[in-house]
Design a protein around this nucleic acid. Structure first.
Length: 487
RNA sequence: GGCGGGGUAGCCAAGUGGUAAGGCACGGCUCUGCAAAAGCUGUAUUCGUCGGUUCGAUUCCGACCCUCGCCUCCA
């Protein structure tokens, strides 16, 4: 097993002139490669989904949004997709969470699954074709373990079954860790299980039952127990997509051990290459740190709403950096995203006005072609967003100087098309309910203005500002806009 | 310690061997009772540091500094 060390940097292949080509970085070969479906039909894409034991945080959503973008770009390029994203609904955290909530495991995970779906929908995540749950594929997982034992890649010990890392020569290739380092890494975290392992690097495929598991267990040839974390993805991916899948993705922290272990399990069982193309999304940082509960910098969609932002603002922020690069989140960048969306909304409205009833002749990218080109080359969202704003600015200028309705119609359709691929909606003002008190203040201010009592008018505006509302006077009278950024 | 990312204006973030996209924020002007919105406009002699190659480097090479992540909980 020789891994070519010379790939110290990502290699860029030549851009194809085929208009529907989509390129993406491959984590295994560290190169930008054309994305292809092996069977020439649909792209078989397996993504590691959430563990449903609590609300997903904005970092989790970065991964899912980038996965969603990949699907959208692929499909906009004319491709078809078989997108599978699992739900991990049994593991230490879900079992503990259910016990603490005094709920059954399935009730507990169903609640968090619903929440994940609601949040995902708010963020514009398209639902994958299949969302398999680990608990629905227990027999397939048991079967996979049995095959691995038969072929000598796994062994039973003390009611659990472990993967014999030594038996798989390619182990560590994806994450570029060699066996010696793995042993050292394991040394600090001795678990009772570890005494049952032949080698510290071996990982558990099937966990023997422990009293704290309560009523969470399944019968198996090795007694009561439950599957290990890595097993579900191998079993479900191979069952639903076949033994070799085109694309497999997830957060960068899954490279080791999760994806490494998936490869070992799957390839040892099937004898075939498990994944043709790896796709890893770098982490979202908050205040330059990885998010964690202990640092108090872990945000959910609920926190975003509390500050007066919309999920779409977050989506734009999460797309503002390249997916292979760490992205630093801050509320300032959320504000920038909101303003960006307002600008897009105004540009959209302007084009719609100029276009009138005119319809575009045929589908095209118009001025947004550079943005599209950036997207299909390894999902270069920062470049694409730059191109998007540039195009919007130029079109606004052109429109003021006189643009034909037919041209506006074409550009409007193109703009909607690129926004659809990004999954980013412009910000449009909408009617919201306001309390009678607030309305009273606004009306009193208007009365003061009419009477040219500027002092009183300004005082009322300050009062409204304190309550979180911004007054904007326009030709048609006053409007109130919810202020953002308030915790 | 091993492996892998980063260091570009106040913030976010592109980019190229030939002289720094875009967004936010900020300043000026127009407009406005004042604001907001909109328009016009200004804002990095400089791309972590030090060397080297070159007519020319932020972009290539070398060394160094700082920082983040992974090394069996983790998107």
């Amino acid at each position: 097993m020789v891994f070519c060390i010379r790939f110290s940097l990502w290699q860029r292949n030549d851009l194809s002139f085929v208009s529907n080509r989509v390129d993406s970085a491959d984590g295994a070969t560290r190169s930008i490669r054309k994305l292809t479906p092996d069977d020439g039909q649909a792209l078989k894409f397996y993504a590691c989904g959430p563990t449903v034991y609590g609300p997903a945080h904005i970092g989790n959503f970065r991964s899912f949004i980038v996965q969603d973008l990949l699907v959208r770009v692929w499909e906009a390029a004319g491709g078809k997709t078989r997108h599978v994203r699992n739900l991990t609904d049994v593991d230490d955290k879900t079992i503990r969470g259910a016990r603490e909530a005094k709920q059954t495991l399935s009730d507990f995970t169903r609640g968090w699954t619903d929440r994940f779906h609601r949040d995902g929908e708010a963020l514009g995540l398209k639902r994958p074709e299949v969302e398999p749950k680990a608990t629905e594929f227990i027999p397939k997982q048991v079967e996979l373990v049995r095959r691995l034992i038969q072929s000598g890649h796994a062994y039973e010990s003390g009611g659990s079954v472990y993967y014999r890392v030594k038996s798989f020569a390619r182990y560590g290739r994806l994450s570029r860790l060699d066996e010696r380092e793995l042993k050292e890494g394991a040394s600090g975290r001795a678990d009772a299980d570890e005494y049952a392992r032949e080698q510290a690097a071996d990982f558990v495929l099937w966990k023997g039952y422990k009293p704290e598991d309560g009523d969470v267990f399944w019968e198996s040839p090795w007694g009561k127990g439950r599957p290990g974390w890595h097993l579900e993805c191998s079993a479900m991916a191979m069952e639903l997509l076949g033994e070799t899948i085109d694309l497999h993705g997830g957060g960068a922290d899954l490279i080791f051990p999760h994806h490494e272990n998936e490869i070992a399990q799957s390839e040892a069982a099937s004898g075939k290459a498990f994944v043709r193309h790896w796709f890893h999304v770098s982490h979202l940082l908050v205040e330059d740190r990885k998010m964690s509960k202990s640092l108090g910098n872990l945000y959910t969609l609920e926190d975003v709403a509390k500050r007066g932002y919309e999920p779409a603002d977050l989506r734009l922020v999460l797309l503002s950096g390249h997916y292979r690069q760490p992205l630093n989140f801050s509320w300032d960048t959320m504000q920038a995203a909101r303003h960006g969306r307002e600008k897009l909304g105004r540009a959209h409205a302007g084009l719609a006005e100029t276009a009138g009833t005119e319809k575009p002749g045929k589908e095209g990218w118009g001025s947004f072609a550079p943005a599209w080109e950036s997207l299909r080359h390894d999902l270069d969202t920062p470049k694409a967003l730059g191109a998007l704003y540039t195009a919007v600015g130029e079109l606004e200028k052109k429109r003021r100087q006189g643009m034909k309705p037919s041209e506006a119609a074409i550009e409007l359709a193109a703009m909607e098309r690129i926004l659809r691929v990004l999954g980013v909606s412009p910000y449009f003002e909408k009617e919201v309910e306001i309390s009678p008190e607030i309305r009273g203040l606004a009306e009193a201010r208007e009365a003061a203005r009419k009477a040219k009592d500027w002092k009183e008018s300004d005082r009322l505006r300050d009062e409204l500002a304190k309550a979180g509302w911004e007054v904007r006077d326009g030709a048609g009278g006053w409007r109130l806009v919810r202020k953002t950024g308030i915790a």
